[in-house]
Structure formats: structure tokens, C-alpha cells
Computed example of a mutant assay.
Amino acid sequence: MIYTEINVSEAVENVILTMEAVIFEKHISLGYEIEPDLTARGNSEQIKQVVMILLENAIKYTNPKGSINITLKKQLIDILFSVANTGEGISSEHLEKIFDRFYRMDQSRVRKYGVSYCQSHH
């Protein structure tokens, strides 16, 4: 894996550009505030992949005619990336598990999509 100094602002903007048509087709309004020229050491493709996954999830779980809001800004020495959407949200009982690999809040979705998931152990 090659790590270099990358322009995170550009990486995020590139992903947004590729997804704008899909968002428009679904009648979702998109707002974003990207602070320019924020850089970090990392892998550009991995950063884009994470942004894409978060944006795809936001699109999937946004209510019709809902909205998605994306922000990227410097916060002290860190870069804060945020994706927020309108929709039913995640109930408090499921919040602690959202970073468990393959965890799904609604198990009926697993059956609906015909995919089997397994719980990982960290």
C-alpha cells in the first residue's frame, strides 16, 4: 500500500461528483461544505472508497425527497468528515454495534436482499 500526502478535499469532491447524478435521480437534495486543500498522509483510493461507502449508505437510507449533507473541515489538528441524512435514523439500542463488521439493524433486510452475513469477532 502506497501512502503519500493527498488532497482529501479533492478526493471527497471527486466522489461527490460521481454520485451527483444518482442523488438527483432519487430526488434527494444534496448540500456540501468542503474546506479546500485539506491534506493528509494516506492512500487516495482508500479514502475515496470510504467516502463512497458512506455516501452510498446515506443515499440508500434517505427518505424520498429527503436530503444529504456532507462536510469536510479542519478541526484543530484533525480533519473532520461528516455525512448526515434525513431518514429514520438508528435507534439507541443499535448505535453501539454500528462499527461491528456486517452488523445490520434490520435483519429482515438481510433476508430481503438474499445475502448472508456473519458477525465478526474483534
Rank of each mutant, 00 (worst) to 15 (best):
V22M: 05
I6L: 15
V51N: 01
N7L: 10
R41H: 05
V50T: 10
N63W: 07
P64H: 07
K73I: 00
E96A: 12
K65C: 07
L55Q: 06
I90R: 07
E45W: 05
A21Q: 13
Y3N: 10
D78M: 03
A40V: 13
R111T: 09
F24C: 09
E25G: 02
I59N: 12
H27Y: 13
N63F: 09
H121F: 13
E56Y: 07
G31Y: 15
S67V: 07
I47S: 06
H122I: 10
L55M: 12
I34Q: 10
S92K: 11
N14Y: 01
C118K: 09
D78H: 11
F102Y: 15
E20P: 01
N14R: 06
V51W: 04
S116T: 11
G87A: 03
M19N: 02
S91A: 09
R109L: 14
P36W: 06
E20R: 14
E33G: 08
I6K: 04
T62R: 09
E20T: 13
S67Y: 15
T18Y: 02
I53N: 14
S9C: 11
I2F: 04
V115N: 00
D106Q: 10
K112C: 00
S91Q: 11
E13N: 12
R111K: 15
L38Q: 07
D100F: 10
L80Y: 12
I79R: 01
D106A: 02
G87W: 04
S108M: 06
A84K: 14
S82Q: 15
G42V: 01
V15M: 01
S44H: 06
A40D: 10
E5A: 07
Y113P: 00
I98K: 05
K74T: 05
S44L: 13
F102V: 00
G42Q: 01
R111P: 00
V83M: 09
S67N: 15
G42A: 02
I16W: 03
I34M: 11
S82I: 12
D100M: 06
E56W: 02
T62V: 09
R101H: 03
N14F: 02
N85Q: 06
T39P: 01
M1I: 03
E25Y: 04
M52F: 12
L30A: 03
D78W: 04
I47R: 04
G87T: 03
L38I: 10
S116V: 06
